[in-house]
Design a protein around this nucleic acid. Sequence first.
DNA 1: GATGAATGAGTATTCATTCAT
DNA 2: GATGAATGAATACTCATTCAT
Lengths: 219, 219, 219, 219
Amino acid sequence: MSGERALRADAERNRRRLLDAAEALFRERGLDVGVAEIAERAGVGRGTLFRNFPTKQDLIAAIVIERMQEATEYTRTLLDAPDAGEALFGFLEELVGRQQLDRCLFDAVADTFLANEEIRAAHAQIVAGLEGLLTRAKESGAVRGDIGAMDVLVLLKGVFEAASAFASSEPGMVTRQLDLVRAAISAHAADRPLRGRPPTLADIERTFPRDEKSVAQTG
Amino acid sequence: MSGERALRADAERNRRRLLDAAEALFRERGLDVGVAEIAERAGVGRGTLFRNFPTKQDLIAAIVIERMQEATEYTRTLLDAPDAGEALFGFLEELVGRQQLDRCLFDAVADTFLANEEIRAAHAQIVAGLEGLLTRAKESGAVRGDIGAMDVLVLLKGVFEAASAFASSEPGMVTRQLDLVRAAISAHAADRPLRGRPPTLADIERTFPRDEKSVAQTG
Amino acid sequence: MSGERALRADAERNRRRLLDAAEALFRERGLDVGVAEIAERAGVGRGTLFRNFPTKQDLIAAIVIERMQEATEYTRTLLDAPDAGEALFGFLEELVGRQQLDRCLFDAVADTFLANEEIRAAHAQIVAGLEGLLTRAKESGAVRGDIGAMDVLVLLKGVFEAASAFASSEPGMVTRQLDLVRAAISAHAADRPLRGRPPTLADIERTFPRDEKSVAQTG
Amino acid sequence: MSGERALRADAERNRRRLLDAAEALFRERGLDVGVAEIAERAGVGRGTLFRNFPTKQDLIAAIVIERMQEATEYTRTLLDAPDAGEALFGFLEELVGRQQLDRCLFDAVADTFLANEEIRAAHAQIVAGLEGLLTRAKESGAVRGDIGAMDVLVLLKGVFEAASAFASSEPGMVTRQLDLVRAAISAHAADRPLRGRPPTLADIERTFPRDEKSVAQTG
DNA sequence: GATGAATGAGTATTCATTCAT
DNA sequence: GATGAATGAATACTCATTCAT
C-alpha cells in the first residue's frame, strides 16, 4: 500500500511536471511545440508523456480543464462577496492577473471542443459560475441588464487573445483592456442597448456539434 | 515588348489567383492549409507559387498587407464624413462586415511581424488612419478622450478573434460585441478613466523587435 | 508534351525502382522493413515513395497485384497448350521458378485483402485462369475430378510459404514439394476421394469480408 | 525451505500463465501483440514477464518448444500402433486437430531458429520421431519410399500456413488439405518418383546458420 | 520476487521548399 | 516562366526493455 502510494507520488510528480512544462511552452511558443520538447523540459522520457496523455490533444485538454476548474472554483469564493460589482470585476482581473487563460489555450478549446466531453462540462460550469456573479452584479446595479455570461466570456476571450501577445512587454495594456471591458458592461453604458439577445451556452455548443465518438465514450 | 507585357499580365494574374486562393483557404481552414492545396485552388503549379512568394510566410504577409492597405484607404474616405463619431463606429462595423481582418490573419501578424518590414509599414499606416478618425471623434465629443488608436485596435483584434469562430453560426454575436466595443470607448463611459496611458505604436513595435535579417533585407 | 512524357519517364522509373526495391527487401526480410530503407535502396527520397504510394499498404498491394496479374497472363498463354496436364503442372513450376509469389506477399494478401478491392479483382482473375487450366486438365484425365482451383491455390500457397525460407539454400526442396503437389492432385490419386467439397472463391472471400470504406471507394 | 518451495510454486504458476496467455494471443492476433497485453491477460506485471523470459523472442521460443515437445511425445505413443500408415496419418490429423502448430508459431521458428539452440534440439527430436513413424509406414507399404521426414514437415508447415487463415471460417478446407497431403505421400503416388533426394535435418539447419551468441550461450 | 512507471529508439506519414524538365 | 516530381527534416505515437519502489 505504501508502495503503491510511493509509486503514485512519483507518477503524480511527473504528470504535474508534464502539465507545467507543456503549459509554459504552449504559452511561450504556441500549440505547435513538439511533444519531444515538452518531455525534455519536463525532464521525463517521451514515453512517459504518452503514458500520462495518450494524445497531444489529451494533454492540451487536461491543461485547459485545469485552468477552467480553477476559474470555476474562484467564482464560488466570490459569490458571498459584499460588493457584487467588484466581485465580478475582481474575477475578471484575477483571471488576467494569473494569466490563467491565454490565447493558445482558447484556441485549443475551439479545436478540442467537439471531441471532448470533459471540456464541455468544465465550460458549462465556468459559464454557470460567471452567470451567478453576473446576476448578482446586475441586481446590485453595477452591470447593465442586457448582457449575458457568454457576452462577457467572448469579450474576455477577445481581450486575452489580443492582449496576451503584449502581456510580457506591455502589461499595462492588459489592464487598460480590462477597464474597457468594465466600461462596456457597466450599467451606465446601457443607455445604448445592445442589439440582439444574449447568446446562451446552447448557442455556443451548437457551434461545436458533438461527434459520435465523443458521445459514445462518455454517455 | 508586347510579349513582355503579356507575360507580365500572366504573372500578375497568377499572383492575384494565388492571393485569392490562399486568402479563401486561410479563412476557411486556418493558416495550416498546405501550399499544395493553395496552388491547386489557384490553378497554378507549386513552383509558380514559390516564384511569386519565396516563402509561405511571404504569401501570408502579402495578404495581410493587402487587407491592411484596404483598411487604411477606407479610413481616408471617412476623414471628411460629417459625423466623426459615426465615421469611427462605421469604420469598425465595416471592417467586421467585410470580414477583412479575420482571426488567422491577426495571428499571422504576430508571427510575421518581426520578420517583415512591409507589414510594419502597413501597420503604421493603419494606426495613423485610425488615429485620425479617433481624434475627430474625440473632438466631436463622441469618444472618450483617454483612449488611443492602439487601444481600439487591440480591442478590435479581440472581437475578431473571439467572434470569428461564431461568425457563421452566430452572426448576431459579432454585432453585440461591436456594440460592447462602442460602449467601451464612448464618451459617456469616461466617468471611470482608464488606468495607464494609451499605448503607442512604438510600444507595440517594441514588443516585436526587428531582427537582423529583416533590417538587412529592407534597409 | 514531350516535356510531360519526359517527366513521366522519370516518375515511372522511380515507381519501378520503388517496386523493385520494396519487393527485394520484403522477400529478404519480410514486410517489416521500414519505408526509409526501401526509399534508400530505391535511391529516392522518402517523400517520393509517399508520392507514389500514399501508404505502405498501397505499396504492398501494388506489388501483390503486379505479381498476380503476371500469373493471370501466364495462365492465358497456356490455355492453348496441347497437353492440358503439362500446362497445369508447368504453370505451377513456372510460378515457383519465377519466385513470383513468396511468403510475405501471401501474408500481405491476407492483411490487405479486406481493404483493397483491386486485390480482390486480381485474385478473382487468377482463380478464373487456374480454373480454366484445371478444367482442361481434368478433361484430359491428368487431374483428379474432385479438386477445385482453390484447393490448388491453398496447396500452392502452402508450398511457397514453407519452401520460400529454403529457396536460396535448398532449391531442390521446392522442386520436391511441387512433385508432391502433383502427386496429390493427379488423377491416379483419386482412388481415395477428398472429404468435403471444393472450396469456392466465394468461400475465400467470405473469410475476408469487405469493409465499408473499400466498397464505397470502388463503387 | 517450504517458503522457498512456495515461491517456486508461485513462480511456476506465473510462468504457466504467461505461456498460456501468450499462446492464446499469438494464435488470435499473431506475433505482433504487445508484451503489455500478454502480461495483462496473464494477470501479472510486465516485469514478471521479463523476469521469466528475458526477451519476447524467448517467450515465443518457449511456446514453440513446448508444442514441439508435445508433438515429439505423441510420436512416441504411436510407435507401437498396429497400423503404421494410419499411425502416421493419424499423427498429422492430430496435429491439425489440436491446432498445436499454427502459422505464427511456424513463422517464429524461422525467425528464432538461428538464435536458439533449444529450438534446434526440439526440432531435431520431432524430426527423429516423425522419421520413426515414417520408416514403419514405408515398411508397411502405406507410404512411398522416396520421401523423408523433412518433406512431410515442410508439406505440413505449408498446409498449416495456408489453411490457418481459413481454420475458423472454412474448417473443411483444412481436412481437404490433409487429404491432399495423404494422397501426395501415399505409396500409390510413387509411380512418378520425386526429383532430388530427401532433404535432411542438416540441410535445414544449414539454412539457419548458428550465430556466435547462440553458440557462446549454449556450448 | 513482483510491480508498473519510465525509457527512447523506431515507425509511418506530412509538407515547405528545390530543381530538372 | 511554369510545372510538378523529388527531397528530407520534422512529427506524433508505439513498444520492448529497464529499474526504482
